[in-house]
Design a protein around this nucleic acid. Structure first.
Lengths: 208, 208
DNA sequence: TGTACATCAGTGAACGCGCGTTCACTGATGTAC
DNA sequence: TGTACATCAGTGAACGCGCGTTCACTGATGTAC
């Protein structure tokens, strides 16, 4: 049996001088992995994170004030990564409708790949305990994407914020149902998203 | 200071012979109240329930095999009560569209009144750990309500199951967003539900 | 009518566990003189 | 070039807490004879 390494597999040495921030990144990465597995912010223990990183529990306090600060930092990185992925997906086409579709679908597939993180980000009780202002960016960008479709005449002119909210609600709803009851036989997400886009936003059906 | 009563206020005496089941109902009631406050099934402790009921923690085991069995029993009663409320709301009118609207709105207002229970019922990790077959009834009845509108010619004939799923997803989505971030300025639920009914189901707008 | 016994509705002490957090500490590496 | 000192990146023991669950038990009430 390998004595030099613990549960997480790779042995951790002390970081060189000036590189103490590396540990912070490692802690956040492990926290994100565990949060995705647990699908519940309250279930994540600081000690479990430390154990998995391969450090003493007390070392977490070098970088984070307390458990909640750690979870919040993890969710902030999670959100940043997600935003970048959405931006990339949108960039594949210049067509406003294709952009809106790509962004919407990416959110759906990301949730499918990271159901636990999706739940923690949008449904954990941390939302009640502290507010996460960064989350608003996602909503604003969807409204921008909807507005683009209207401006280009590809969707009937309307209150973009209201339409965007309807679309986000519908997509969040089906994604939430799929994430929370993964064993039920759900219809294909693509077709449902297409219906939401045509019925709620009013974009032409089946455009590229 | 009143020594005869504990935190919950009313002193509890032993139930008379043959009435041992009363305690079971009391435990479930308290569990529901705490679940609504906590909004998280994992956060509910058997000991907290016992404390609040005014009994020894061990007494819970007389009626429930373990903590999860208690939570499941509570959610089953919660669901039963909710179903009855929905049925009552539907009964106020004979018009299929009014019925569908009433049922949909009641689910929304119920969630607003019991945000914690809504979360536990639909978003808690208990959904992953055990399945709750009774929940399917709610979905089926919505599909029935949609089908009625189609049969009466009040909505375009379509796949009622798919339309029902779209409607439930949209409503669950906006309710979930409102419940999880209660401090954000949400637009009126009635108007949004009306949009979902007209755009997703295709019922005539503003009918009584 | 009396009494032994069964049943019922609970109780109290104890178990081992993992948790968040505090505290004083270690030992390697750089820096001022 | 040597050495005292500061800084950095962490550690280990300990705290008190609430938890789920097990176990042997109590004391009131009904029932058979």
């Amino acid at each position: 049996m390998d004595v030099t390494s613990s549960a997480q597999g790779s042995a951790r040495g002390r970081n060189p001088r000036g590189q103490g921030e590396r540990l912070r990144e490692d802690i956040v990465s492990v926290a994100l992995r565990l949060l995705d597995e647990l699908a519940d912010d309250q279930a994540l223990s600081l000690r479990a994170v430390a154990r998995e990183v391969g450090i003493a529990a007390t070392s977490v306090y070098i970088h984070f004030a307390d458990r909640d600060a750690l979870v919040l930092a993890a969710l902030e990185r999670c959100h940043r990564d997600l935003m970048r992925a959405v931006d990339q997906a949108e960039a594949i086409s210049a067509d406003p409708v294709a952009k809106l579709r790509a962004r919407t679908l990416l959110l759906g597939t990301w949730a499918h790949q990271h159901p636990g993180l999706y739940k923690v980000l949008h449904e954990s009780t941390l939302n009640q305990r502290t507010d996460m202002p960064f989350k608003q960016e996602l909503a604003e960008r969807t409204t921008t994407a909807v507005q683009r479709c209207m401006d280009a005449g590809l969707a009937p002119a309307d209150d973009a914020a209201a339409v965007s909210h309807d679309l986000r609600a519908a997509v969040h709803g089906t994604v939430s149902m799929r994430v929370n009851q993964p064993d039920l036989p759900w219809p294909p997400l693509e077709e449902q998203v297409e219906r939401f886009l045509t019925k709620l936003v009013g974009v032409p059906p089946g455009s590229p």
